[in-house]
Write a protein that binds this DNA or RNA. Structure first.
Lengths: 105, 105
DNA sequence: GTAATGCATTACCGATTGGTAAAGCGTTGA
DNA sequence: TCAACGCTTTACCAATCGGTAATGCATTAC
């Protein structure tokens, strides 16, 4: 299973993408702080999602006392996601121009 | 289910990402031409993957006689994927610079 | 030392997924 | 007209996934 596979599978779940968003917003969060944003989920559920994100290299975890602080792993995003995105850049940059054109800008 | 959800779920499968790659390479392909690249898969399997990609708005299909020609839908990529990617741009552009630095460039 | 905290791990469940085989359906060629 | 083609749809199967509950395991507070 390639790194790319792990990454895209990790991104497939909306809860995990929301976790990434929260981490990007707050720089760093503990599991408890994250769990506060998901009242509909049980703590171990969040933990499992974080394990998936960590396995994909999308987040890093550093122990701090009895807390675990999570943060976005920019390196993996740069190394795996950016090149993939770049392949389609040509496609959507043209499409973006069309969209802006339609918006009257 | 949001557009973003559909898109990321569609991208989660490696076969579907390979289909996108092939379409990006060849501009447009029929199901039969695509199937030739996946000898391990049965035709209806390819078709199902294409349905998923179409549901996510990642490809378009136009009938041509009894063939169906598929192509990458750049507009959806621009409208849904590009904004998501942009959120993390700041993260990985910094990381990319670090990587290039390590590479000695 | 012992209890409580914070998180991870395990076991388990229903739902979804990727796959095949077979039937269906419009289109074309004979 | 009707057989073959090209693809889609359906029915079905094993495997994976997201979720919970319960247990385990460090770490800190008392």
């Amino acid at each position: 299973m390639s790194e790319e596979d792990d990454l895209f599978r990790a991104l497939a779940d909306p809860t995990r993408r929301r976790i990434l968003d929260l981490l990007a917003e707050h720089e760093t969060l503990t599991v408890g702080e994250l769990a506060a944003h998901f009242p509909e989920l049980v703590a171990s559920g969040i933990s499992k999602h974080l394990m998936a994100l960590r396995a994909a290299g999308l987040v890093t975890a550093t122990r701090q006392g009895r807390h675990q602080r999570y943060a976005v792993d920019a390196d993996t995003m740069a190394r795996v996601l950016a090149p993939w995105v770049a392949k389609y850049d040509a496609y959507w940059s043209a499409a973006l121009l069309r969209l802006r054109g339609l918006a009257g800008e």
